[in-house]
Design a protein around this nucleic acid. Structure first.
Lengths: 216, 216
DNA sequence: TAAAAAATTTAGACTTGTCTAAAAAAGATG
DNA sequence: CATCTTTTTTAGACAAGTCTAAATTTTTTA
């Protein structure tokens, strides 16, 4: 098996690779809160194990083997988050750090039974898709609220920013997964938006609108 | 917080201290599958942190602070074992290694909620008492089956040996927690015992009788 | 396109936890 | 009680993963 550090690098590379083709040393250093030199060391190690393709100065991407490991860690992370919210009644802003530890519990038998125990959930508490036991990830195509125009409506299905602060803000505004919102007006000055939801009007900043994801 | 290695040392010292007053370096090395020299190094570190009382060549025992940490790890271990058996349908011989990883998940809030979720169980799947959230451990006084005489009976409430092999053997013989057994006869030659349980007779060796625990 | 800036890697060091081999202390034995 | 054996500790080394500082490569910009 792989060490905790290796698993965290693979997971981070996977996440960054969703927006960039090749992941840079500095991006990884920032995400992992470490130094670029430390990242370089680890990249060599992961390349030796053939979990990543690494060309010095050119960034990295995951090999098939590396991606398999990364997806499995993400599967575990999201299933544990689901468990914490659905079974232990935690709020969606409280579960990330705990799941960060739990994702490294090694047994796949355990995680598959947990999956079954919870009824094979498809999405975690933040709306992110839970990879199945074969590593297949259903990527639904979400848009930020900021991309729709007045009179259009959509259902909240995810968030771009997963920070505690943002999640707590959304919770307070009742802007939670499953809610349907309609854009009433966009303020030209600052691109803030007035939404209609369950008969109430809510004003959100452009920043918020960019980080709140919906399906039409 | 403490490192994984530190937590494992504290837990091991706690377990060994149940039978010995002072725990020796070699005992720890054997239990932790490491070398005596490694143990000495760690003991110094734990003594610096005031988690153990350590006098060179004289063995160690836990301070109040050290015992608190050890009991909390054992609480987590046993609650996760209970979870794995009661919620995820694992057998009692399958859960030790998984719980060994899960006991290091740090959040106490998580473990207290898990405790509540499961209805505050008092004993783990092997009959060992689960410490409560204040660190109180109900130590019930169990005797090995080998200590009782013909015509006496008792209820199986625990095991001394927790090995997979022993647990699987007991499972096969239906000698599981909660069953009531009566001693029919003790074979003088090898001290093996013939038990009566649920209308059937079962013969167990002295070795087994020593490791199967009951209350009268 | 040459110099400046940014990104990345290398070199060397540090910490944690482990190891082997040797030294020292404690306990057992004649 | 002196010696032998066992236990424990010390000394020095190593692997993993990190760091700082310096060197190198790539990218940007004038």
């Amino acid at each position: 098996m792989n060490t905790l550090a290796e698993e965290n690098y693979l997971k981070s590379i996977y996440h960054l690779a969703l927006s960039n083709e090749n992941v840079s040393t500095n991006q990884l250093a920032a995400l992992l809160k470490t130094k670029a030199s430390s990242v370089t060391d680890m990249l060599k190690k992961l390349a030796d194990k053939e979990l990543i393709n690494y060309t010095p100065y050119q960034g990295v991407n995951l090999t098939v083997a590396g991606e398999k490991i990364a997806v499995n860690i993400i599967r575990k992370h999201r299933l544990w988050e689901y468990f914490l919210v659905e079974k232990l009644s935690f709020k969606w802003d409280q579960v990330h750090d705990m799941a960060e530890e739990m994702e490294h519990i090694s047994s796949n038998e355990l995680i598959n039974r947990l999956d079954k125990f919870m009824g094979f959930p498809k999405y975690d508490p933040h709306g992110d898709p839970i990879p199945d036991c074969n590593g297949l990830v259903k990527t639904h195509d979400l848009k930020p609220v900021s991309s729709i125009t007045p009179n259009q409506s959509g259902t909240i299905c995810g968030v771009r920013d997963h920070s505690t602060l943002f999640l707590q803000y959304l919770e307070k505004q009742s802007l939670t997964i499953g809610k349907t919102v309609e854009v009433v007006e966009i303020i030209e000055f600052d691109h803030s938006m007035i939404l209609q939801m369950e008969g109430k009007r809510i004003q959100i900043s452009r920043e918020v609108a960019n980080n709140l994801l919906i399906v039409l």
